[in-house]
Amino acid sequence: MSFEHWLAFAAASAVLLAIPGPTILLVVSYALGHGRKTALATVTGVSLGDFVAMTASILGLGAILATSAEAYTVLRWIGGAYLVYLGIRLWRAPVGDGPLADNDNLREQSPLRIVLHAFAVTALNPKSIVFFVAFVPQFIDATQPFLPQMIVLEATFVTLAAINALVYALIADKARVFIRKHTVQRAVNRTGGTLLIAAGAVTAGYRKIAA
């Protein structure tokens, strides 16, 4: 793989990842509710989710989802339902009267639980898997060995995804300083919950565009 191919892939991936989606909404909601102490768990979950989705695409799952309506429907309904569940939980989350801080009185979340949430939201997105099938081959040099190129591309994408999630988490953590009123905290929870529910509905209702 030439440096030009890699650079084009890295640039396209960075632009794609910067666009907020269900994964970033989850990362931001955890950071707003619990601060930067959740960043490691959410970044780990996002990285593992992207790794699994990209690997599954490489191994052929993406091709199956692209051609099998039944498999695609099952996966998008599972992913959509999980996003709706998380959105409802965030909507109903309790809020406090004081400013949010790392020593607040919000109920603690197990790091493993956060990792699994972020992993599920990232990996159970059928559009991501189908996207990898359509996106990655454009940067493969057919004259070069396949496996080394895939290792480089996958490592690049997962690393950029982790950095992107970390940046969003840190930004959201800084925003917590300005969230002091009970009504503002509730509005943040309900806005984030609504967006997650909407993302779940869109995921569940997504239809592949016929070629």
Rank of each mutant, 00 (worst) to 15 (best):
M1R: 04
E4A: 15
H5D: 12
W6C: 03
W6M: 07
L7F: 15
A12D: 00
A12S: 12
V15E: 05
L16A: 14
L17T: 02
A18D: 10
A18T: 10
I19L: 14
P20E: 04
L26I: 09
V27A: 15
G33V: 05
R36Q: 11
K37Q: 13
A39P: 13
L40F: 14
T42G: 02
T44D: 03
T44W: 06
T44F: 12
T44H: 11
G45K: 09
G45H: 11
G45F: 09
V46G: 10
G49C: 02
D50A: 05
V52P: 07
M54E: 00
M54W: 06
M54H: 07
T55P: 01
T55V: 07
S57Q: 03
I58S: 10
I58R: 11
G60D: 07
G60H: 10
A63M: 11
A63S: 11
L65P: 07
E70Q: 06
A71W: 14
T73K: 07
R76G: 00
W77H: 13
I78A: 15
I78M: 15
G79A: 12
G80C: 11
V84G: 11
Y85T: 08
R92T: 09
R92I: 06
V95M: 05
G98D: 14
P99F: 06
D102I: 04
D102W: 07
N103V: 13
D104K: 09
N105Q: 14
L106E: 12
R107Y: 02
Q109T: 01
S110L: 05
S110R: 14
P111L: 01
R113H: 08
R113Y: 06
I114D: 08
I114G: 08
I114M: 15
V115C: 10
H117T: 09
A118L: 13
V121F: 08
T122M: 10
A123V: 14
L124V: 10
P126L: 09
K127L: 08
K127M: 06
K127V: 03
K127A: 07
V130N: 00
F131D: 00
V133A: 08
A134P: 03
V136K: 05
V136C: 04
V136S: 03
P137M: 05
Q138L: 14
F139H: 10
D141C: 04
A142V: 01
A142S: 13
T143N: 10
Q144L: 13
F146M: 05
P148Q: 00
M150C: 12
I151K: 00
V152S: 02
L153H: 09
T156E: 00
F157V: 04
V158D: 00
T159G: 12
L160V: 03
L160F: 14
A161P: 05
A161R: 09
I163D: 05
I163A: 14
I163V: 15
A165H: 05
A165I: 06
V167I: 15
Y168K: 11
A169D: 04
A169S: 15
A172I: 08
D173A: 15
K174E: 08
A175D: 02
R176L: 00
V177T: 09
F178P: 04
F178N: 06
F178H: 08
I179G: 07
K181T: 06
K181I: 00
T183P: 01
V184D: 02
V188T: 13
N189S: 08
R190D: 03
R190V: 11
T194R: 00
L196T: 02
G200R: 05
A201V: 12
A204G: 15
G205K: 11
Y206W: 14
Y206M: 09
R207S: 12
I209Q: 08
A211K: 09
